[in-house]
């Protein structure tokens, strides 16, 4: 394949407010065109920080970014002014978790999508409006013509998230960043939005980075999953390999902690302890204090992300795959 659409090399992000926190530590991600990557992790693992860094949404004064970040051949960290404006929304666009907060409450949905289109493309008001309406129809909003003039608070949660997706896709981005887009939605609506995202991805051929803490949601949309822990990627592989034969102890624990019918009546295999404090990461592997396989070496040295067959694992003692459990 030719050059990947997204390539992050040793990306580190440090927040230096009144308290220092290393949110990302040497993250490497490569994403080809048309690929869907699921970023899986708990709160504080750096999933959302990765997305926000890709859009350069962090306050510049208090954020230290190191490493390289290339999207579609552009060096994102060097972008300035108009080029950055065109990059945001034009090349890369984002769907947020809370559509109620991401929309401006004093403009209608239609006005906001129209405005976004006119900011990026040299089209007239009428053409932009027609395009915006078309977008609302594409995300399967019923009675799109009526909803075009609705304010965000007049829509239900599911409708708002669809409108958010319409807004994000209005300028035909090459990369869509989805930050827990279905977490705030009900189960029956969540599956509708997941199916919609999958369908739109197939139609447009865009790449998607889908951030979630719900393995089920990631399995529904992603081709490849990267598991994050304390600002590092600990395991990366195709969806099937992650779900069926995880190698990193944290992934194993995460899957075991996912409740299913078969666990009824027995205690769950919980990972002991809590995620580490990002302001004071342990010197070695950040999962070592919670890991049952941890050795001296784990506490001293950070394991690099090494490839192991068709996957990458950052662990000194990867779990041996069990013969397909019944």
């Amino acid at each position: 394949m030719s050059a990947p659409l997204v390539s992050l090399q040793d990306l580190s992000v440090q927040f230096c407010g009144h308290r220092k926190a290393s949110a990302l530590n040497a993250v490497n991600i490569e994403l080809g065109a048309g690929e869907v990557l699921g970023l899986l992790g708990e709160s504080g693992s750096g999933k959302s920080v990765t997305l926000r860094t890709l859009l350069r949404l962090h306050p510049e004064r208090t954020t230290k970014i190191q490493g390289k970040m290339q999207v579609d051949g552009q060096d994102v960290l060097a972008l300035k002014g108009r080029a950055l404006d065109l990059y945001r929304g034009g090349t890369v666009s984002m769907v947020f978790q809370e559509p109620g907060l991401a929309f401006d409450p004093v403009y209608t949905i239609g006005q906001q999508i129209t405005e976004a289109i006119r900011a990026h493309e040299a089209v007239g008001e009428a053409a932009a409006r027609a395009q915006a309406l078309h977008m609302l129809e594409r995300v399967q909003i019923p009675q799109a013509r009526r909803r075009f003039d609705a304010y965000p608070h007049e829509l239900s949660g599911g409708m708002r998230q669809r409108a958010m997706i319409a807004l994000a896709l209005a300028c035909k981005p090459k990369l869509l960043l989805a930050d827990e887009p279905t977490t705030a939605l009900d189960a029956t609506v969540q599956i509708q939005v997941l199916l919609l995202l999958r369908e739109l991805q197939r139609e447009t051929g865009m790449s998607v980075i889908f951030v979630t803490h719900d393995i089920g949601a990631a399995v529904e949309v992603a081709d490849r999953i990267a598991v994050m822990y304390a600002g590092r990627i600990v395991e990366q592989a195709a969806v099937g390999d992650i779900v069926r034969a995880p190698r990193h102890p944290y992934t194993v624990g995460l899957l075991a902690a996912t409740v299913g019918a078969e666990h009824r009546g027995q205690p769950l295999q919980a990972v002991p302890g809590a995620p580490p404090d990002l302001a004071a990461l342990p010197p070695g592997c950040s999962f070592a204090p919670r890991c049952t396989h941890a050795s001296e070496r784990c506490r001293r040295e950070v394991p690099p992300l090494t490839s192991l067959g068709n996957r990458a694992v950052a662990c000194w003692h990867p779990v041996q795959p069990v013969a397909e459990a019944a």
């Binding site: 019923p142 239900s156 949660g157 599911g158 409708m159 009900d186 189960a187 029956t188 609506v189 969540q190 599956i191 509708q192 997941l194 199916l195 719900d214 393995i215 089920g216 949601a217 399995v219 529904e220 969806v239 099937g240 779900v243 996912t258 299913g260």
Partner: peptide, 20 residues
């Protein structure tokens, strides 16, 4: 409507349309 955990058997159609 619960997401399936099996990548080979993804949900193909949504069981319910619309919001409550």
């Amino acid at each position: 409507a619960v997401p399936s955990m099996d990548p080979d058997r993804r949900t193909e159609s949504s069981p319910l349309a619309g919001d409550p």
